[in-house]
Write a protein that binds this DNA or RNA. Structure first.
Lengths: 329, 329
DNA sequence: CGGAGTACTGTTAACGCAAACATTTCTGGT
DNA sequence: ACCAGAAATGTTTGCGTTAACAGTACTCCG
């Protein structure tokens, strides 16, 4: 900076002003400074700026298993939204499974590193075990943290309802459920809403079959469903399990959707490429990402107290070829 | 820091020493300081440290379309490896498509922000259009940059070879190819290696059909393949297109693998859940991520000059149910 | 018991930047 | 030609940290 100042024949302060586009610099001076900057390859040092300003222009983001589900699309949306607001995104702790690790990662990060934290998925950590630096603005999409921090999430309940309603409308007597793991709150919400929707329609809810979100578990659990001739419609708690289920059905010689209709949840890219293309409840991950950033930045910049705001993003039923009226109708 | 010093009855310098685990502090003093740090919730300010040290403990990472392919798994591996080396990862510019944007993002980042840069995928940018701050250590997995920067990549050629060999060994007379877009270097490499492997085996190479990596394009291009009774084996340049192709084959009433065998490339999670489960050439994205970090940190920390090192990560043929001998054998 | 180490702790200064305040240079009105 | 006020630029200072140097208080030896 000093060199630039010398070369342009001005003070360092003026260079600083030009660097920040302050309007109080005479255009010709600014031009001269800019030439000098260019010539010397000068860029403001962000560490010094952060030190001076007391903030970092960076938000942290905790996520797990990017390859899975809509995680990656949320991450993308967050990065894009944050960038357009001039913030940089630091990705933390994708792999480590233990709750301690998450806390440790956050502590390491501390609020000496980031201005706010977005928790996409904290996996094994819970609101009790996860200790965050006080005064660090946080926003979550992991539903276990709802009520503890401002949150953004898809409309789990509405999604399950629309899935069940769709199948009942096609004429199915009832709808089976391939549920997610019991320790997952979204899984429980989808399951509860499924049960409620059946009750509402006067249908009998069969016992739920359970997987762990993976396609393999859907395949395993699907074997039981495939063997039961009573089963004509299944609402799977996510698309991966639905894929596994359909594979099990194929192997059992049961036609989809001829014998059994299947609805998934999430709307992942490949759901359209399964055989048959999967009817699914699509989440708007882009919107979730954008709202996360919005909620976080409102706390960071405007010091708003969002307390336990919970922003619910609507879902959308995407009707494809895996659903049809039950056989014999 | 001053507060901690006051509370512990020492100087700020001693607090600094304790924070950095310098061994020259008397154990009891260190203990007293640590108590004070705990009590006051003190954490060293990283901006100040970065300013002092002149480096950031951060690496930048450019990637596009995380939802696709193995991108997300590479990203995961990079983050994990970087974290275990005490580095933080900043994710940049996922969405913007224009070359200028990439350069702009990098410039914004500059080497005032990061100690090194990992380019997973720079999409439309080319070695010519992408201007990097000089002296910024870089490592790439995007093959268009091979030769310009140290690179890590999967063994495209070996992968195509093993796919073709597998199909020929099953008894197919030749192997069709569902190629990637012509502006993609890996696509061209896979295509060339496919052609070479056929020539090597004395088989006639049919014209390649072309997609753009997406499952939809595989479906569209697959229609032509499905209509041609001569086609008994297809090597698809990636798993998504293979999925689309299989859907097209199903719709055309051609059995997989009874009538047509299909091999994919990448080994994405869902390839095992397609119907039938897809035989594919799996890339080791974890290893790619780890090598990227290793190569970058060797430049950053040890100032090694890696020039145009090119580290080739082996691939592995995963035989599943989408391949079989041709009909009538 | 004096002096040379050694162990430990403190003081000063600088990293690059920008806010606050100070100073100079210009403008327009008379 | 002069002055008030605005416009443009400069100077000082401190953000939190740590390297370099400067003590001070011990320990051990002759």
């Amino acid at each position: 900076m000093t060199d630039v100042a010398a070369l342009a024949g001005v003070s360092a302060q003026t260079v600083s002003r030009v660097a920040r586009d302050e309007p109080t610099v005479k255009p010709e001076t600014a031009a001269r400074v800019r030439v000098a900057m260019e010539q010397l390859g000068y860029t403001p040092n962000r560490a010094a700026r952060a030190l001076r300003y007391g903030h970092y222009g960076t938000v942290g983001m905790i996520a797990h298993r990017l390859a899975r589900t809509g995680e990656s699309r949320t991450v993308e949306a967050v990065v894009e939204a944050a960038q357009s607001e001039g913030y940089t995104v630091t990705l933390v702790d994708l792999a480590s499974p233990a709750a301690d690790d998450v806390s440790a990662a956050v502590a390491r990060l501390s609020h000496q590193d980031i201005d706010g934290l977005i928790i996409i998925r904290a996996e094994t950590a819970t609101p009790d075990t996860l200790v965050l630096p006080s005064h660090l603005p946080v926003v979550v999409s992991d539903s276990r943290f709802v009520g503890h921090h401002p949150a953004v999430g898809a409309d789990q309940v509405g999604g399950a309802e629309v899935a069940v309603a769709h199948l009942l409308r096609l004429g199915h007597r009832t709808v089976h459920h391939l549920a997610g793991p019991p320790d997952s709150i979204p899984a429980r919400q989808r399951e509860e809403a499924w049960r409620a929707a059946l009750a509402e329609a006067g249908a009998v809810a069969p016992p739920a079959v359970r997987g762990d979100w993976t396609a393999t578990s859907g395949y395993d659990a699907g074997a039981a469903l495939a063997a039961d001739p009573e089963v004509t419609a299944v609402f799977a708690a996510n698309d991966e399990m639905a894929a596994g289920l359909m594979r099990a059905l194929h192997e059992a010689g049961r036609a989809v959707p001829g014998d059994v209709s299947v609805v998934g949840f999430d709307g992942i890219e490949l759901s359209a490429q399964l055989w048959p293309p999967l009817t699914t409840v699509a989440q708007d991950f882009g919107e979730i990402g954008r709202r996360l950033v919005d909620l976080l930045l409102r706390q960071v910049r405007d010091r708003e107290d969002l307390a336990d705001t919970h922003s619910v993003v609507p879902v959308r039923l995407v009707e494809r070829a895996s659903t049809a009226p039950p056989p014999g109708r």
